[in-house]
Design a protein around this nucleic acid. Structure first.
Lengths: 345, 345
DNA sequence: GCCAAGATTGTTAGCGGTATCAATGCCGCA
DNA sequence: TGCGGCATTGATACCGCTAACAATCTTGGC
C-alpha cells in the first residue's frame, strides 16, 4: 500500500490527509484538527501542518467529510426559468450571500411548473446531500409539491405568499401593486387597466389583488384583466387588443417586459405615452430607465431577497425545525416614477 | 448497534443500504447492483430489492458513493454576473442538458474579473468533488487564471476565443460583427460607429475586430470606438456623446442593452431611427423586437451554446485529456433585420 | 447423470475523513 | 517531590457505499 502510494504511478494522485500527517510528523487526527479547530492545536504544530498542507497542495476530500459529518456546505436552489431577470437576480443574491459563508449553490431549474416537477427538483437535490433547499418558484404548484416533504429538511421559500410551513422571503407584491395603481389614480385617471402575469403564479395573483384593492378603495370601476405570460411579446399582443380603446388612459403591467411590449403596441396605435396613456411596470429592470419613454415602475430588490432567503436558511440550519415558527422577511417595494406616467388631461 | 438502529430513537433515520438488503433478504452488494447495473441481477431478486427500496424510501448516500467511485454527478459552472441575459441563458442551457444526463449543476459566480477571482472560483468547485468545470467568463483574465490548472481536471470554456488548452464552445462573435457592419454598409451608410463592450472581454474584442474588418474590407473610414460596459446606461451615455453629430448615420452596438440606451439618447436628441440613424445590436434578447423601433440585431443562441458546452464536457469526461486535441464548437450567429436599420437617404 | 462455463450472489477491504475516548506531556501547588 | 488537572496528541472505529474477488447456483452438452 505504502509502496504504491509513493511509487511513480501515484505521482499525480492528490494528497490525502495521511500524506500531510506524515510530512508534518503528526497523526491524521491532528491535521484534521488544524483544519477544523485550529485553536486546539499548539501553534508550533499547527504551523508545521499548514506548511505541509501548502507544500502538498492538500485539499480535504469533501465527500469523506460529508460522509461522517452529514454536512456538505452545499445549498440547493430550485428555480423556474433562470433566464428571467427576477429569478436570475434572486439566484445571484443567494449565491453572493452563500459565498460569504462558504456555501456553494447547486441549482435545478424547472422546465415545467407542476407539482411533480417541483418534487423531482427537490429530490434531485436531496440526492446530493445538500444542507438545505431554497425554492424560487412563486407558483401555486409549488405549494402543492412542497406539502409532503419531510419537515427535517431545511427549506426556505422565496416569493410564494401561499400559506406554506416554511420560512419565506418575499417582496410585498400586493403593496407594490397598490402603490402603482394609486399613483395612476392620483394623476387623475378614472380607472386603471391591468395586464396580469400568468395564472397560478403567486406573484401575479398578488399584484392583481393589490390593483383590485386600490381601485376598490376609491370606488372605481374594475376593468377586466388581460392575462399575459411575463414576456414582452405577450404585453405587445395584449396591448394591441386595447391600444385603440379611447377609454384607455392608464395601464398597470405585471412586469417591465410586458410594459415594454405594451409601449410598443401603444406607439404603433399612435397613442402617446404619457400624453394619452400612462403606463406603470413592475420590477425595475436595469433597462427600464431607457425605454421610450422611461418607465415608471415598482422596484424589487431581487438581490436583497436572495440575501435574506439565505439568511433565513442559515437560521434554519442553525436551529432545526422550530415547530410552528415560520419566519418571514417581507420587503416593501418602492415606486420609481419616470416619464411613462402623466397627469390625465 | 443493531438495536440502536431499530430502536425508537432511530425511527426517523433515513434508510441505508443495509436496511434495504435486510428487508429484501439479500446482501448490500446486491442492492448496490440493482441500483447501478440492474441487468446483472436476476429479475426476481431485482423486483424484491426494488420493492424494499420503495418501502423504505431509500435514497443512496451520494457522499459515500463519491468517496469510493470518485464521481459525483455534479458539474461546476463558474460564471460572471448571471444577471446578464447572456450568461443566464447559457447557464440555463447547460442546466437543461445536464438534467437530461442526470448531472446537477453547482454554480459559482464571480464578483470581480481577475486572475485571482477565477482561480478561487475554480478552487471552490474543486473542493466540492465536481466531475468537471465549465467556465463562462469570456474575459481575458480567465485566460490568465486558467493557465495553471491541473490538466487532468475536465474543463470546458464558453466564449473565450483566447488560445486556451481547453475545449471551447462559442459563438463566432467576429463573424456576427462583420454581418452587422456589412448590413449597415449595404444600406448605403458611409461608415459605421461602434459602441464597444468593456475592455478585456474577449467577446467585446472579437466584435470590435469584426467591425473593423468589415469596414477595412470596403476601404471605409474607421471611426473611433466608444467603450461601454454592456449596460443600457453606458449605451445611453455614450449615445449622448455622439447623438448630435451630423455625420452619424449608422451605429453598431456591442449588445442589445447598449443599443437600447443608444436609442434613448438618439430620441432625446431628436434623431429619428431609422430615418436619420440606423442602429444594430447584438444578442437578440427576447425584448429587442419591442424596442422603439424594433431592433435589428445579431442573434446568439445562448441555450444552444450551453448545450454544446455540456456535450463537450461529456466527451471530455468520457475520454480523459486527449492531449493536444482541443475540440471546438463554434456557432454562426444570425443577423435579424428589424426596423432600426434603414436605407441611407 | 456429471461437469465446466457462465450467471448470480456474497465477502472483504477499503475510499478519506472525523467523533470519541485514551494516552501522554506539562504545569503549578501542597 | 508527588499529584491532580488541563492541554495536546494519538489510536480506533466507523460514516455508507462499491471494486474486486470468492463462493455458490444454474444451465447445457455429452
Amino acid at each position: 500500500m505504502e509502496e504504491i502510494r509513493s511509487g511513480r504511478t501515484a505521482e499525480r494522485r492528490p494528497a490525502v490527509m495521511d500524506d500531510v500527517a506524515e510530512l508534518a510528523g503528526v497523526s491524521a487526527m491532528t491535521v484534521s484538527r488544524v483544519l477544523n479547530s485550529p485553536e486546539k492545536v499548539r501553534p508550533a504544530t499547527r504551523a508545521r501542518v499548514l506548511a505541509a498542507v501548502r507544500e502538498l497542495d492538500y485539499r480535504p476530500n469533501l465527500a469523506a467529510r460529508v460522509l461522517v459529518t452529514g454536512r456538505s456546505g452545499v445549498l440547493g436552489v430550485v428555480s423556474f426559468d433562470t433566464t428571467l431577470y427576477g429569478p436570475a437576480s434572486t439566484l445571484y443574491g443567494i449565491e453572493r450571500a452563500a459565498r460569504e459563508h462558504d456555501y456553494v449553490i447547486s441549482i435545478v431549474s424547472l422546465s415545467a411548473l407542476n407539482r411533480k416537477s417541483i418534487g423531482e427538483g427537490v429530490d434531485r437535490l436531496r440526492g446530493q446531500n445538500v444542507d438545505g433547499i431554497i425554492i424560487v418558484a412563486p407558483h401555486e404548484s409549488a405549494a402543492e409539491g412542497l406539502r409532503d416533504l419531510p419537515p427535517e429538511l431545511p427549506i426556505v421559500v422565496v416569493g410564494a405568499a401561499e400559506d406554506l410551513p416554511f420560512p419565506l422571503a418575499s417582496v410585498d407584491h400586493q403593496a407594490g401593486a397598490v402603490r402603482a395603481t394609486r399613483h395612476l389614480l392620483s394623476l387623475g385617471h378614472e380607472t386603471v387597466r391591468h395586464l396580469a402575469g400568468p395564472a397560478n403564479w403567486v406573484d401575479a395573483h398578488a399584484r392583481v389583488t393589490g390593483w383590485h384593492e386600490a381601485l376598490t378603495a376609491e370606488g372605481r370601476e374594475i376593468p377586466e384583466i388581460l392575462i399575459g405570460d411575463w414576456s414582452a411579446q405577450s404585453g405587445y399582443q395584449l396591448g394591441k387588443l386595447i391600444a385603440r380603446d379611447p377609454e384607455l388612459t392608464a395601464v398597470f403591467a405585471a412586469n417591465d417586459a410586458m410594459a415594454l411590449g405594451l409601449l410598443r403596441a401603444l406607439r404603433e396605435a399612435g397613442r402617446g405615452v404619457p400624453g394619452e396613456v400612462s403606463v406603470v411596470g413592475f420590477d425595475d429592470v436595469p433597462e427600464s430607465p431607457y425605454f421610450s419613454p422611461p418607465l415608471t415602475t415598482v422596484r424589487q430588490n431581487f438581490g436583497d431577497i436572495g440575501h435574506r432567503a439565505f439568511k433565513l436558511m442559515l437560521d434554519r440550519i442553525g436551529s432545526p425545525a422550530a415547530d410552528g415558527a415560520r419566519p418571514r422577511r417581507i420587503i416593501e417595494p418602492e415606486l420609481v416614477v419616470r416619464e411613462s406616467t402623466g397627469i390625465r388631461r
